[in-house]
C-alpha cells in the first residue's frame, strides 16, 4: 500500500489530486468523528460476555477487540448512535448510553 498522505486544509488547486480522488486507503482514520457525539456508550468489562454483537453491528468500527475480547471503545470515531447498547443482549447489558455532558 502506498504511503498515507493527508491533504492539508487550505491546499491549492495545484496541490490536490484531480476530481477529489483520494489516492490512498484508510484515510478515514485521520478524520475524528467522535466530536459529533451527544451520547456516549460505556462498556462494563465485568458484565460483558464477549459475544461481539456490538462489534458486528457498530457502523463505525469503533468497538475495539483484542484476542476475541472487547477491550474498549474508540471514542475518536464513535458517533454515539447507540446501536451497540441496543444489540447487547437483555440479560447482559454491558453497554449503557450516557449523555456526553454527564461525563464531562
Amino acid at each position: 500500500m502506498s504511503e498515507k498522505k493527508v491533504i492539508p486544509a487550505g491546499a491549492t488547486w495545484k496541490e490536490i489530486p484531480v476530481a477529489g480522488i483520494i489516492p490512498t486507503a484508510g484515510t478515514a482514520q485521520e478524520f475524528k468523528t467522535g466530536d459529533w457525539r451527544t451520547r456516549k456508550p460505556i462498556h462494563d468489562e465485568k458484565k460483558c460476555i464477549n459475544c461481539l454483537r456490538c462489534w458486528i453491528y457498530c457502523p463505525d468500527a469503533s468497538i475495539m477487540v483484542k484476542d476475541g475480547k472487547v477491550i474498549g471503545i474508540d471514542y475518536d470515531h464513535c458517533k454515539g448512535c447507540g446501536i451497540c447498547a441496543n444489540v447487547c443482549p437483555d440479560k447482559v447489558k454491558a453497554l449503557t448510553m450516557i449523555a456526553q455532558s454527564e461525563e464531562e
Partner: peptide, 25 residues
Amino acid sequence: KNPITMGPLDLQDFYFEHKKQQAEA
C-alpha cells in the same frame, strides 16, 4: 495494490478547487 477512492463527497473546502482544475484542463 493501490486502493483509492473516486467520487467522494466534496464540500465547501475543496469542491471549488476541483472545478478550477476542470476549467484549467
